[in-house]
Nucleic acid binder design. Sequence first.
DNA 1: TTGAAAGCGATACCAC
DNA 2: GTGGTATCGCTTTCAA
Lengths: 334, 334
Amino acid sequence: MSIRQRATLDDVARLAHVSPKTVSRVFSQRHLVSPATAEAVLAAAKRLKFRPNTVARNLRGGASNTVGFVIGELLNPFYSTVATGLERVLADNGKTLIVASTDDTAEGEERVADTLLAQRVAALLMVPVGEDQSYLEGERQLGCPVISIDRPARNLVADSVVLENRTGAFSATRSLMARGHRKIAYICNPAAVYTQAERIQGYREAIASGGRAEPTPWERLLDDPAANPAAVVADLLAMDDAPTAIIAGNNRMCIGALQVLDSLEHPPALIGFDDFDTADILGVSVVSHDAVDMGRQAAELALERIMDPTGFTRQIIIPTKLIHRGSGEHPPYA
Amino acid sequence: MSIRQRATLDDVARLAHVSPKTVSRVFSQRHLVSPATAEAVLAAAKRLKFRPNTVARNLRGGASNTVGFVIGELLNPFYSTVATGLERVLADNGKTLIVASTDDTAEGEERVADTLLAQRVAALLMVPVGEDQSYLEGERQLGCPVISIDRPARNLVADSVVLENRTGAFSATRSLMARGHRKIAYICNPAAVYTQAERIQGYREAIASGGRAEPTPWERLLDDPAANPAAVVADLLAMDDAPTAIIAGNNRMCIGALQVLDSLEHPPALIGFDDFDTADILGVSVVSHDAVDMGRQAAELALERIMDPTGFTRQIIIPTKLIHRGSGEHPPYA
DNA sequence: TTGAAAGCGATACCAC
DNA sequence: GTGGTATCGCTTTCAA
């Protein structure tokens, strides 16, 4: 199984008896070449199995046709869904998507961003993990736009696309209150991220709007990746003054809660954040959003910035929506 | 917010009063440069915010440090899970992952593969969609290895990583038979893909091993993306001779079946293919597999082939495992 | 409409 | 240890 040589533009030119430049034109500005010449060139290209090299092509321009996406963990369905939206828009615009994971660490983020920048991505999309993205400021000034997804970047001028977290949590809480709940818990893990800070805020505002001044004793803001969601819920329910309703700050906590609630005769009401496949079967009410659209909008923002790196930065807010499926609509059982 | 120029290796050389070649060495073969010179170069590089350009670097070598992954739909958790495994191994080996979706069409596959090959990916990983991948034969001979994931490529010499589909379906069927089931249905959509062909085969073999020669009347092999899984199940259950157990050939069909079964007092037994997040909560027995590992193995195969494009192709089989959770272990209710 | 020549940013080969 | 020089594959002036 021998390895042949790859044909270059020059090879094609030679075979077609034209100059390299003409071949180049055939593959980029066909209309500037006479039909006869073009045909001859294409025939030669075909015979040699010639394929233009995008990399060499972009070497001139400075930036490539690739866009980087720095993500915590592709395994997380939320991010892979965002990636789907990104990829669709980018592909439609002749760009390809490079994905790189940070393992959810700040060092990982910087390392990975570095790799992507070395590839001269035309734009850098990222879900920030670290506390500080100022290390990207130089690149931004060098013309590589940065778009922050799901959480705003810190100490860096960057466009961002985030969810309507606060309002989402607020509505969920108010919805429970409207059904008579007064003892509403909020559980999440990890808690030290922008999205949770916002959601907690929304929860607290709703609680406060009900006349309660001090924070509730039912907040469980964990920050231990190893923590067992089910145990947290079990603890809450064992309280003397147990909550009659629970808001789960994310997917994992919601599913963890379900494991406990499933076996109860009179479970507390439950509303999750982030929709999931079997939520309708399980009758779980959730604060939902369109993550594909989030990716799409981020990609469009990126394309816009690639065209024009100057101009004011923008923040796009993706709406959230409370979906009623039963688990969050019954009154307190006590 | 002015756009500055990006510093090149030459700029650094000039500032450090050394030749470009020396700068190059500092960034690739540091040990060949005297510590003093290296330090001076690094200082200059830092001042100019110099970052080596991977693209230009790879221009010489012929192939890049990128690996392409052609996928039907990143939205499908199975594929995004595979992508996770891929990315981890590739990142550990200094390669970056480019993902591109085909929208599950053969034309899409070819178009997307073309884009990736034009980027000179060092290897092409793909979940084949079309009926024929012979169009890649030329590239393979040109030194770009192709690794087929989840289904073997057709008319193309390529390594592949697939699941133990047949045995998985066989075990599931036998397990149901061991619990007294004789009327076992198999439902899937789409049916015209390798994985389903294999699983159906395993199902039939198990049925045959029970002494039944002719095919069962409970096979529902659909090929209509718009078909409603729940309706298929409802139809089955409405039969005079309704099945007492159902095997769902994939995730979507399994969840569709659940929607119907959930409301029945004496539902038929159910075993799904592909695990999912809430399967344990719902008590759904499934034929499970490790998709992250699948990606990992595919990536390792790719790296191996990049090093040595010759040699025999291999097929790696990822084991499947029947997980008992209740839905598939009860006897027939009739 | 077509072509010659000079890069793009880095590396490799070969001297010193 | 260090430096010239050609080169990777293509595109962009600028002429013809």
